[in-house]
Simulated scan of single mutants.
Amino acid sequence: MSTLPAYVVFGEALTDFIRQSDGRWAAQPGGACWNVACVGVRLGVAAGYAGSVSNDLFGDALYMLAAEAGLDMRFTQRFDAPPLLAMVPSTQPPEYFFIGEGSADLRFDPDRLPVGWRSAAQILHFGCISLAREPLASKLVEVALAAHLAGKRIAFDPNWRNLMTHAAYRDTFHVMAGITDYLKVSDEDLQHLFPGINQREAIAHLRALAPFAQIMVTRGAAGMSLFCDGIEYTQPAFPVTVADTVGCGDAAMGGWMASLLRQPDAAPATHLRFAAATAALVATRTGAYAPCWEEVSSLLAQQITESPHAQ
């Protein structure tokens, strides 16, 4: 592989330990940013996951699955350090905590990325707990700021977690929002990021913080919206049989970026519908499934849904 990818995803990869109904724990490779990268490359976009994983069985699984998905492995680093783990005692309602003191993800070194990667990249993605864990967070903000100044497009998915309650994250969030071209939030993200106000007010605050961004708001079964050039486009959720919703937000983000990169002249409503279809497909599978372009295109062709419309 010689050509460098157009889509580079920065952030954490981790192993989820999910408590099962019988009391046992099931280990599942994941992490929001790692999921986004896998979705992007499975949808036919040349992509790299720019993060680091441990040199043990947990890191082996993440590294192997990333390679199998087709990611550019020159971007993924490995270190002799503990793995980052997410303990999930309950999914309904969601409960979780992270184990990652001195873990491998924190050692990521941007200077070890392939020569010329930034010139080749078109969209850089950032988000989730990688922007709330030092020293990684500061490194990634520096990468994002430099890329923004170089004219690269920045994608940002806050993907709120309980690590983001400290004051330092608020500053990071404001910096990232201010340089972002594509910003995705869920309705739950908005509740945590802008507590005490309703969703419309929260979106108005977000649009003020991210004046140059297209903003996608996902609402689960209630569908999603895209705010672009002063217009709000809406998309109902696709009617599918839901196995679980793990990874749906990551799929929406990856689907949105893949649509932008593969069909750049398409209308905003087309990108929104593609993102919704990608998320719907993931909901039909257990775990953070990454569909291919043909699967999403088939769903789009089969489903008869109300077309997105401007409000």
Score class of each variant (00 low, 15 high):
S130I: 14
L140S: 09
P158I: 05
L183H: 00
H166D: 15
I179K: 06
K152C: 12
H192S: 09
Y182R: 10
S138K: 12
I179G: 05
S138M: 09
I129E: 02
V175E: 13
L140I: 13
C128E: 00
L149Y: 11
I154K: 05
D187V: 12
A137E: 14
N162T: 15
A132D: 14
G178H: 13
F126W: 13
H148V: 06
T165D: 09
H125E: 07
M176T: 01
R170Q: 14
H174G: 03
L149G: 12
H192G: 01
G127Q: 11
S186R: 06
H166Q: 14
D181L: 05
N162P: 05
V175S: 02
C128W: 07
F126G: 08
E188I: 10
S186K: 10
A155P: 07
F156I: 07
V143N: 07
D187T: 15
Q122K: 13
E134S: 08
F173S: 05
A167I: 11
Q122R: 11
G151F: 01
Q122Y: 00
H174L: 11
Y182I: 06
D187L: 05
L190T: 01
Y169N: 07
A155H: 02
A168S: 15
H148Y: 06
L163D: 03
L140A: 07
A167L: 15
H174T: 13
H174I: 08
L190G: 00
N159Q: 00
A150R: 12
A132L: 09
Y182T: 03
H125G: 05
L149T: 14
I179E: 00
A177L: 05
L136W: 12
D157T: 04
M164S: 09
D171M: 13
I123V: 03
K184H: 04
E134Y: 08
C128I: 04
N162L: 13
T165I: 05
F156Y: 15
H174N: 15
T165Y: 06
N159C: 04
T172S: 03
A177W: 02
A146Y: 07
G178S: 13
F173P: 11
V143C: 14
I129V: 09
T180V: 01
I179F: 00
A132H: 10
A137M: 08
E188M: 04
A155S: 15
I123A: 01
S130M: 09
L140K: 04
C128V: 08
T180P: 02
H125T: 04
H166N: 15
